[in-house]
Design a protein around this nucleic acid. Sequence first.
DNA 1: GGCCGTGATACCCGCCGGGTATCGTGAGCC
DNA 2: GGCTCACGATACCCGGCGGGTATCACGGCC
Lengths: 301, 301
Amino acid sequence: MIPAGYREPVETRELRYFVAVAEELHFGRAAQRLGMAQPPLSRAIQRLERRLGVTLFDRTNRTIALTEAGTVLLREGRAALDAVAAAERRTRRAVSGRPGLVLVTKAGATGELLSKLLDAYAAEPGAATVDVLLCQPGEQERLLRDGRADVALLHRPFDSTSGLDAEELYTEGQVAVLPAAHPLTNRPHLRTADVAALPGLPLPRWPGPGGTYPPGPGPEVRDHAQLLQLIALGRASAILPDSCLPHLDPRLAAVPVLDAAPVTTVIAWPPHSRSLPLAALIRIALRLGSEHGSAALVQGG
Amino acid sequence: MIPAGYREPVETRELRYFVAVAEELHFGRAAQRLGMAQPPLSRAIQRLERRLGVTLFDRTNRTIALTEAGTVLLREGRAALDAVAAAERRTRRAVSGRPGLVLVTKAGATGELLSKLLDAYAAEPGAATVDVLLCQPGEQERLLRDGRADVALLHRPFDSTSGLDAEELYTEGQVAVLPAAHPLTNRPHLRTADVAALPGLPLPRWPGPGGTYPPGPGPEVRDHAQLLQLIALGRASAILPDSCLPHLDPRLAAVPVLDAAPVTTVIAWPPHSRSLPLAALIRIALRLGSEHGSAALVQGG
DNA sequence: GGCCGTGATACCCGCCGGGTATCGTGAGCC
DNA sequence: GGCTCACGATACCCGGCGGGTATCACGGCC
């Protein structure tokens, strides 16, 4: 009956266990995090290794380290767990008759476009309710993947749209944001090199995936408000998209940076999600994006 | 200890059970397919519904149908199961020291580019072994998603690259392929409308996702060889990319179709897979693609 | 109205996931 | 060098749950 070569499939519980251990690199702490005792966790990992026919951890009897295969399983397992969580959440929310969209974007960015988009969409006949989720930079992709959000406004090249479907809305240049009193604010324009090494005004460090900060001299920041305040205090400088200009503090000044990479705002959503409310929202975003683009051209030209 | 609002996570076994039932729409057959008895399957689905707080099937006591939530879970659950399977397979293949790539493409397409690509890559220092998988049209995306393949050659707009990372290689026009004796073969060029309604020579029907054919008059085909033979027999016509010309049977003739959508060959891979051998293969494909493109331009005048 | 076919229920069993107690062992330390 | 400690592995036990068989409830069909 059982076909030859049949193997027991991996269960999500085992994946969660593995991810916990791989992240903690410590069976005891991982067990604590999982709300269980350590021995069953050890056994579960052993069983998983047997089942896969692969050793996932190098145990040197005092500390453990991920093998190459373990590194792969950590990455792929996280994605798989996200997919399962997405299936669960999206199913829960699909109870007949309550469409509802969750839109996610970075806190403190895309202010005007977002409010215009929400207004225009709400005016649409038969529009679904749209919940807005504001989060740290770099978290949006995760929220889309694990089903907590349905659609996102992202900013290339800062955010990656890898694995998502996306449409470009508009593209803008970038400006250097400096304390208003800084001598460079008299210049008509700057280059990235001018801003990169300003004495006493280092560029900030943003958290990477996982919430850890890269090493460097700049201050650690988590959102735009925090960053702008640091600049006003004369502790940092920054290069930000043009669209930050309208809500700029009077203690700050902005100078165009000629060779900074252009920033493209895109609307992105998980692949294969073809709901009518989402399609309508995307359509309206595209329309507003092109209007925004031509308005910017008029202003700039 | 247990946080409030905690819910048992869904296990992959439950997802497999649900998908089987949703596909068969019959508990008995689904149980048979799963190699188990029907009662435990019914219970498992009930438990899943309780756990999700959602009814997945409308049971009308003789036959069952998917609810709206069930439809969502079918789509999302398949994706999640694919992701789990991919994690499993990629981990198994990641045993240290054996890189190895699996490239998948449609049987009977991209002949020259593929062989050139394999040759060029094999000549690279430190190249991994590349296994080639030929499959039915529309299956490649699945193979990439569930980890059976690492990279694919796809053809837009026939294949979707939704949810994949992709780079364009080259673009070509399309030709109508007809029996050599057909009167239209004297024309210098055609339009899609000319070919669409040829009496006695209907366009073929390709299988959609799931292997089912759309309704219509044309013959059901599964690959290019089959299709070309049908055309030679005077039972069908087709519109195919220019690159089918070199290996065309003498009983067949091709006429350019002016308003047919251009076909773009792309190399695609699952997001977040950044292995060195894959990167090298993509780089070489891009080089060959641009060469191919310019060569086509020279030929075409 | 008897009879299938279908999904749901009842009941039982064996295994496995999880707990506690304990061991083996290498690191660190004086 | 021996003591201790930290950490993962092992031993053993138990309860629950996943899976099996037998049976029920019910609606369509001849």
